[in-house]
Amino acid sequence: MENKDLIIDMKGIYKRFYIGQPNELEILKGIDLQVYRGEFVSIVGASGSGKSTLMNIIGALDRPTEGSYSLDGVPMGEVPDDLLSDIRNQKIGFVFQTFNLIPRTSALNNVALPMLYGGVPRGLRTRRAKWLLEQVGMGERMSHQPNELSGGQKQRVAIARAMANDPAIILADEPTGALDTSTGRLVMDLFHRLHQQGKTIVLITHNPELALETQRVITISDGRVIREEEGKSLCI
């Protein structure tokens, strides 16, 4: 029976590159991972541990070589590219280390973009984008372009954008990596607030202190989950 509260369900995930070639590389070596609705989970690991590859598979940017993965009840087998696009659009909200806002496009239109790709009508798109920007405290800077915003402001816009289609999970890859400590703190507080509102968040980081703020810390090393521990579940 399928657990409705299981958002990420990974069983025996392998990922190999250069298959059949002499330099064949096995990055993920049988990952089992379950994330439940409303959880705030962090994945930590050193460079080269396979954590980025795992994130790409979770984020439907890549397919596993072997193993089964279903996201919010949708099995991610041999799905075509366009369906992967739809899954990314509807189920996942990405937050990147380098913000990745679309240049020369206002904060409002950046937030509206996932809804544009999701086919949301213009009026609704704009209304929701405004509301989301207000939620992250960027209501005053909606028409600003990315180059007119500070790092912290950019990341807040990016988080609003990640929320645009009300995704099943927010996948944040080192969201504070490019920010100074205090700004990073503000961004983390924002994630905690979203978590309290019931969002499922997966945080990928190599910063153990940040990881410990989450409910569960999953440590990856050499393509395997080597440790799962409870975080301090820092609630504000």
Binding site: D81, S85, R88, Q90, N100, I102, L113, Y117, N165
Partner: peptide
């Protein structure tokens, strides 16, 4: 390239 990557991550289909 990065912008294109971002758009794809946000759910843009190849056709878009």
């Amino acid at each position: 390239t990065r912008e294109i990557g971002t758009r794809k991550a946000l759910g843009a289909k190849n056709s878009a």
